[in-house]
Amino acid sequence: MNNWEGCNKMRSWNSITLGEVLPFKYGKNLPASKRTHSGEYDVVSSAGIIDSHDTAFTTEPCIVIGRKGSIGSLTYCPDPVWPTDTTFYVTGTPYCDLRFGYYVLQTLPLNQMNNDSAVPGLNRNDAESLAFSLPPVSEQKTIAKVLGSLDDKIAANQRTIQSADSLRNALWDKLLKTNTESLPLSSLAEFINGRAFTKNATGTGRVVARIAELNSGIGSNTVFNDIEVHQNHVVLPGELLFAWSGTLMTKRWPYDEAIVNQHIFKVLPISKFDLWALELIIQSQIHYFQMIAAGKATTMGHIKRADLDKTVEVPTSIPDKLNMLGKTLWMLASQAEQENQTLARTRDELLPLLMSGKITVRDAEEASAEVGVDKHEVKE
């Protein structure tokens, strides 16, 4: 009797390999010329969802896994999709619930299994030989529901963020259709430059917010420092940062209190325009600033403080009610972003503990309840 045949009949968890219960299948090439931007089905590569198509290559829900390039990347696809030839994909089996399998794959070192020195590549035999502990299917489904409830709430918050920001953009566009004036960007806000706080960092204390954190969030390479700095160089959740070097971008800071590193402005209102509007004003000039930065070929692309003197088109006035609406939308999105950080931390802490059987589902439900996910919200 195979291990997976016995797992439903035994209360203990069995050691199993991926290939026995989640065999990897190759995605199929779909040239860009054959993709349709308005297709019904997502096209998924190792970089995630990249386009759409009129038909699906796999009609079953699946997990798409990066095979070339971003190896080990994971995209959970509850609907039919087209996995490209840079991917593997797996579907659920009678012995392994698909969403449970998605969380299993997150605990395995797929992204470290590069067997190609030129272009990162994942070998199917190596991946399928990875072992993990498999509980009975009923327990798999329960574990997946608990972790899924956290991911579902994160997804719902993300939709709230997108809606709030879309409404904020629409509000600004409406205001620009009234009376406007041209003012220097530098006159609308205080742009406080960060400093080199990564030097001699202690490894403890607050996050040092660098461009890497603005791009990709807090990760294993994030620098921490317990140095005391002036409040001007501290960013709080919901405040606005503007990277003026490298990747020129704005960022509503969603994490805990941090220290602002060099090459980043902390943006503070000094005029009639609050953060909700200032972010849109700066964004309206991002392409201009990127063009300036791209012209500095001998150094890392950047702008100078003098470039902030560029005039921008802004409303002559903003009615109090509309300004309050803009601030409310900014705050709503910020709160959802902050909650998502808490939810993601909880999920990431529970994931290895649940998958190893070190905590029970009841323990995980209690932990989820502490961050606002009621067990009754867990979907079937």
Rank of each mutant, 00 (worst) to 15 (best):
F100Y: 15
E366G: 05
T328V: 02
S117G: 10
S182A: 12
L351P: 08
E40C: 10
P80E: 09
R99F: 08
L214W: 06
E257F: 01
P31T: 15
P269W: 09
D363K: 14
L308S: 06
A336L: 03
R159G: 06
E60K: 15
D307L: 10
Q112N: 05
I281E: 05
I281G: 07
A155G: 00
S12H: 05
E380N: 12
S163N: 06
T247M: 11
L240S: 01
D85I: 11
G27Y: 08
N179I: 10
H302T: 12
P83I: 12
T160V: 08
T198G: 05
S334E: 05
Q140C: 01
D274Y: 00
Q106R: 15
V43W: 00
F57K: 13
A333N: 03
F191Y: 14
A170S: 15
E60A: 15
N3S: 01
I65C: 03
E40M: 10
N169S: 13
L147W: 07
M10A: 09
K177C: 12
I227S: 04
S52R: 14
S73D: 00
G6D: 00
I49W: 09
N215G: 03
D97Q: 00
P184R: 00
E370D: 12
L236I: 13
R67N: 10
A201L: 11
V208W: 03
S271N: 04
R168A: 15
A127D: 08
E228D: 14
A201M: 15
R11W: 03
Q112V: 02
F289K: 04
L30K: 05
S45C: 09
N115A: 09
G194M: 14
Y76Q: 12
L108W: 04
V223F: 04
R124T: 10
S52H: 12
T316Y: 14
P184T: 12
L18T: 13
D348F: 09
P269K: 02
L280N: 07
G238S: 04
A170Q: 13
A344S: 12
V207T: 09
M113K: 09
A56L: 00
L185W: 01
K145A: 14
R195P: 02
L18F: 10
T84C: 13
D79C: 09
V146F: 00
L98W: 06
F100D: 01
G238K: 03
T298W: 03
K266M: 07
D274V: 06
E279N: 11
S45K: 02
N114G: 10
I227A: 05
G217K: 01
A196T: 15
N225I: 08
S46T: 14
N215T: 01
E279I: 11
V119D: 07
L74E: 02
D151L: 01
A170K: 14
G19S: 04
V43R: 06
K145I: 04
H376K: 12
P94N: 13
P31Q: 08
D173R: 13
P23G: 04
H287A: 11
L18S: 02
S117W: 08
I227G: 02
V361Y: 12
H287N: 11
T107A: 06
I50P: 09
V21Y: 05
D307C: 04
P23D: 01
H53Q: 04
T250Q: 06
L354M: 06
A170N: 11
S216V: 01
R168G: 03
H376C: 07
M291A: 12
S138F: 08
